[in-house]
Design a protein around this nucleic acid. Structure first.
Lengths: 147, 147
DNA sequence: TCTTGAACCTATAGTTACTGTAGACATTAC
DNA sequence: GTAATGTCTACAGTAACTATAGGTTCAAGA
């Protein structure tokens, strides 16, 4: 009987939109909660926990399918955790690639901003830099699939 | 004169799918090229250049709208480059936020993978870590809108 | 107590940035 | 010359939301 958690409350707690919560319910990522007499969803704290888990994983780039897998693993905690481990490892190398590329971009963005100061487009390197292939060669070419 | 660049060639050169190129043409991000006698698109090197530009910007997280803006700026190089500068700056802070978060995640993923070795889900911290709010507090709470 | 405004409900359509499929025509390689 | 591969259009599908319409419920103030 904590406090009555409405969908708005848990959405706010997890930092997402109300519709997103309903969407997650619809696709079976969170269980359908009981309803009040007036047909409104009533949650408990575990819902916040799960929703926060999902939002964190999402913000960090896990696709919903990976999250779904992790959740189903956590619902059955007697398995060996090779599967969770594999998901985490795959995610780690993806994260490394992103960090690498983002650092390269950061560098270029700073350079651009410096050089732009007061100039004209013609003198500005923003656009060149983005056409520059050197950004690629530092990194994978094997995985054109990104995000 | 150059070589006849088919859509397949430029897609390959830029590291994207053929359909993606047609899609960019359809939404007006790249100009419609001339056609061969058999109605197939024939490109020149500038198309590779523009397409590469777009792909780089996309891979680095620029939304198509920002790219569209940058392109239209570059087509008119006598303007002051405040606008390109503003786009770059906005992107920079976004990039910083992402890098920050990804580093936090990287750390946690490594910890998870360590702790997982040979264990069971019940002893594994992958799932806890992803529910952990401490990842948030290091970073923005003001911009729930992400990617 | 009544009322009004915010929050909730369902259902459906729209968004971004692609990706895939079908069925037909073109090109290239043997 | 024919078979494989590439390209064409048009349209449907995907992920992960986000917005809208039209209605109901709830909480707070007059």
């Amino acid at each position: 009987m904590a406090h009555d958690l409405t969908i708005g409350r848990i959405a706010e707690a997890a930092g997402c939109k109300v519709q997103t919560v309903r969407y997650y319910e619809q696709i079976g990522l969170i269980p359908a909660p009981p309803r009040s007499s007036g047909n409104q969803r009533v949650y408990d704290d575990s819902a916040i926990h799960r929703l926060t888990f999902i939002r964190h994983a999402r913000e960090l780039g896990f696709p919903l399918q990976a999250i779904r897998d992790l959740i189903s693993l956590s619902d059955d905690p007697n398995q060996p955790c090779d599967a969770a481990d594999a998901i985490a490892k795959a995610q780690l190398s993806e994260v490394d690639r992103r960090i690498h590329r983002l650092h390269a971009l950061r560098h270029e963005l700073e350079r651009m901003i410096e050089q732009c100061r007061g100039g004209r487009i013609a003198d500005c390197r923003v656009l060149e830099v983005l056409s520059d292939h050197s950004l690629c060669e530092t990194d994978d070419h094997s995985t054109p699939k990104e995000r």
